[in-house]
Amino acid sequence: MLIDCPWCGPRSEREFRCGGEGHIVRPETPDAVDDTVWADYLFYRDNPKGLGYERWLHRFGCGRWFNVVRSTTDHRLAAVYGMSDPRPELGGDR
């Protein structure tokens, strides 16, 4: 894949590390949630066929993390955006 790092522009996949699903929210007060909620945060992922949210690290580049929307069927990157940017809607072509 060619990944369009928000800081460095398009670079080879070899320079990056995929950090798994994006927009996983850590419970605000972990002590206050039950084991099911905590397990959901730790282990349960959507693993969609088609477009999904991921976070990536430009490990051998600028060292910055960022979000992408990527299709797991054809590796197409539908969106690249910063860690603090709002999550784009996936729309109907998911």
Partner: peptide, 13 residues
């Protein structure tokens, strides 16, 4: 070093 940055950038920017 990588994990410290991951927490800083992704969870506590």
């Amino acid at each position: 070093a990588e994990i410290l940055e991951e927490w800083l950038q992704c969870e506590w920017p």
